[in-house]
Design a protein around this nucleic acid. Structure first.
Lengths: 211, 211
DNA sequence: CAGAAGTTACTGACCGGTCATTCATTAATC
DNA sequence: GATTAATGAATGACCGGTCAGTAACTTCTG
């Protein structure tokens, strides 16, 4: 058998290759069960190499999650920038749903919920830079629609939370069909349409019940 | 110092004491990180005793979760049984929210999402007996409201999923305030009121946009 | 009723396997 | 041949699970 070199030196690409592999393994196994050796194997390197670029398993976890979390907001502000409020809201929903249905989202969200208490710094980052921002962005659209009279009067932050709830929860359900059979065989496009219709019904409806 | 007996024989109470302690520790630490010794300590027994009543850590996990999960549906069908659809829906929301805001819910839900893939049997139990049932129950109320003309025409299963999304997601957020600052200092009662109003707005509104 | 004999709930030191981390060595590259 | 990237065998901490021993409780006997 003819072999190429047993390995190649690629110092600049290694870190991101390892992070990618790490996110996958952490997503499948969780922090405690994931084995550094498996992450290394998936990244095509040996266990020792991981320790050249990261100080340990926890560091690797932190970086992998930060890397993925930081992308959640990609494209959201752009989507929200053109047209009348209802259109913009629909585009916002589409853009957010695009992020949420990425296969890694469900896993990442579970990792966030399950492991983040151990990483206070990363928790703060997530709360400030991600979780809060999504609600703020959509709230801005809703506020405008409210002021222009296109949407009924409603606290924009409340409405925004409701809409985000619908999207996130449906994304989680979609990511675990074996636990949540009530979605049946609906595809992603149907779901997002249902969410849009429900949200807009709640927003354009004049009625409103007095408290 | 005077000591009582070093321990007492209480064979009949042991199992449930251990399950209770187990649920708490699993909720805090996850399956892999939780130590049997810590569960034992919290239950006030030694490690060996745990193995008298359960065959191992996984068995303990399975039983603790099944025990808790089985209670999720408590009181839901009763709540849904009197009055016109809007009232019944509000009572259903109140009853479900009562379950969801129990401190153990957030933790249990995360355990479900994170660890259940390893327990196919328990997954099936959850999917069939819990997850599906909640949606069915509320869908029945909505269907009736739709048929009586009190709610607009809408697929009851879709509307039901939307409503459950709102409740479950807000419960998760509530259970991790450090990750989700957008709820501010709102209390539980405000949140459930907001959810009711939003849901009913979406349901009673005549408008509807053509697809 | 004493207290001996028997039963079993319970304990905790120990064993064995797993896996994060280290580091002496080797291979590629300059 | 000097430098640095990469390897993988070796190390040791940790923890699930075991089991010989002990203490609480029960029953039997005179």
């Amino acid at each position: 058998m003819v072999h190429g070199p047993r390995w190649r030196r690629r110092p600049s690409e290694r870190p991101s290759e390892i992070l990618q592999a790490a996110l996958e393994v952490f997503a499948e196994q969780g922090l405690a069960r994931a084995r550094v050796e498996d992450i290394a194997k998936r990244a095509g390197v040996s266990k020792g190499t991981v320790y050249l670029y990261f100080t340990g398993k926890e560091d690797l976890f932190r970086e992998a999650l930060r890397d993925r979390v930081a992308r959640t907001l990609e494209g959201l502000s752009a989507a929200a920038s053109q047209g009348d409020p209802a259109e913009r809201l629909e585009r916002f929903i589409d853009a957010y749903w695009l992020q949420l249905r990425r296969p890694s989202f469900g896993a990442m969200y579970v990792l966030l919920l399950a492991e983040l208490p151990q990483f206070p710094e990363l928790s703060r980052f997530y709360a400030e830079e991600v979780s809060g921002k999504v609600v703020q962005l959509s709230a801005a659209i809703i506020r405008e629609g409210s002021e222009s009279g296109q949407f009924r009067e409603i606290d924009p932050l409340v409405a925004s939370r409701m809409m985000v709830s619908l999207l996130v929860q449906h994304a989680i359900w979609t990511s675990r069909p074996e636990l949540f059979p009530h979605l049946g065989t609906r595809d992603s496009a149907d779901i997002v349409t249902e969410i849009k219709q429900f949200t807009l019904s709640a927003l354009v409806c004049a009625s409103g019940r007095a408290a």
